[in-house]
Amino acid sequence: MAALGPRSKPLVPALCRAFADCGRQLTPECAAERRDAAPSRASRFCPPRQSCHDWIGPPDRQSNLRPVQFYVPEDESPLEQRLRELRQETQEWNQEFWANQNSTFMKEKEEFIHSRLKAKGLALRTESGQRATLNAEEMADFYKDFLSKNFQKHMYYNRDWYRRNFAITVFMGRVALHRAWKRLRSGRR
């Protein structure tokens, strides 16, 4: 493999720009959806029309999770459809949980900071106009309290998360066996 010399450096950014938009044309449905959709919590990410794979989009603003656009093959069997739907339901459930959790966390954090600053007799803004903050030890109290308050919720979330992933894994095994059986049957004829 040859290394790029100093003369090729200007070429690299040009090539990157040239290939950056390759294959990014939106399907007419996605393009119309982007134009017409009001700002919402759901990502409006759309993969290229000719794609035959699942695509992972940019992180969601509320949940910080990356949404997945699932590929739907034309010859999708009922078992494959059930697997895809189960994965979609799990993704939506996960996105919703973390969006709510992060929203609650930020709200309670702001309230905690405000109450501590007020107890100290400080304003939310410093004299220079910057936002007033608490030190790490004071914030550690908030984090500890928040985790303690939400322990049960996180325990139920983890239990459900493992159940859903186990069900998805079982369905994936069933789909793999179904595909192998279908391939064997078509090979005999």
Results as ranks from 00 to 15, higher is better:
Pro6Lys: 05
Ser8Gly: 01
Pro10Glu: 07
Val12Ala: 08
Ala14His: 11
Leu15Ile: 14
Leu15His: 10
Arg17Leu: 13
Phe19Glu: 12
Asp21Ile: 13
Asp21Trp: 09
Asp21Ala: 15
Gly23Asn: 09
Gly23His: 10
Thr27His: 03
Pro28Met: 10
Ala32Ser: 13
Arg34Leu: 06
Pro39Tyr: 04
Ala42Tyr: 14
Arg44Val: 11
Phe45Ala: 00
Cys46Tyr: 03
Pro48Phe: 14
Ser51Lys: 00
Ser51Pro: 01
His53Lys: 02
Ile56Ser: 10
Gln62Leu: 02
Ser63Phe: 00
Asn64Ile: 08
Leu65Ile: 01
Leu65Val: 00
Pro67Thr: 07
Pro67Asp: 06
Phe70Met: 05
Tyr71Lys: 02
Tyr71Ser: 01
Val72Trp: 13
Glu74Leu: 11
Glu80Gly: 08
Arg87Glu: 00
Glu89Trp: 05
Thr90Asn: 15
Gln91Thr: 01
Glu92Trp: 02
Glu92His: 06
Phe97Leu: 07
Gln101Tyr: 15
Gln101Ser: 13
Phe105Cys: 00
Lys107Met: 09
Glu108Pro: 11
Ile113Trp: 06
Ile113His: 02
Lys118Glu: 15
Ala119Arg: 01
Lys120Gly: 12
Gly121Trp: 01
Arg131Val: 04
Thr133Lys: 04
Leu134Glu: 02
Leu134Asn: 03
Leu134Ser: 02
Ala140Tyr: 06
Tyr143Val: 01
Asp145Trp: 01
Phe146Pro: 05
Phe146Trp: 06
Phe146Lys: 07
Ser148Arg: 15
Gln152His: 14
His154Phe: 01
His154Leu: 08
Met155Asn: 07
Tyr156His: 07
Tyr157Lys: 02
Arg159Pro: 06
Asp160Asn: 13
Asn165Met: 14
Asn165Thr: 10
Phe166His: 05
Ile168Phe: 05
Phe171Lys: 11
Met172Ser: 14
Val175Pro: 04
Arg179Trp: 02
Ala180Trp: 14
Ala180Leu: 12
Lys182Trp: 12
Arg185Leu: 15
Ser186Gly: 08
Gly187Phe: 14
Gly187Leu: 15
Arg189Thr: 07
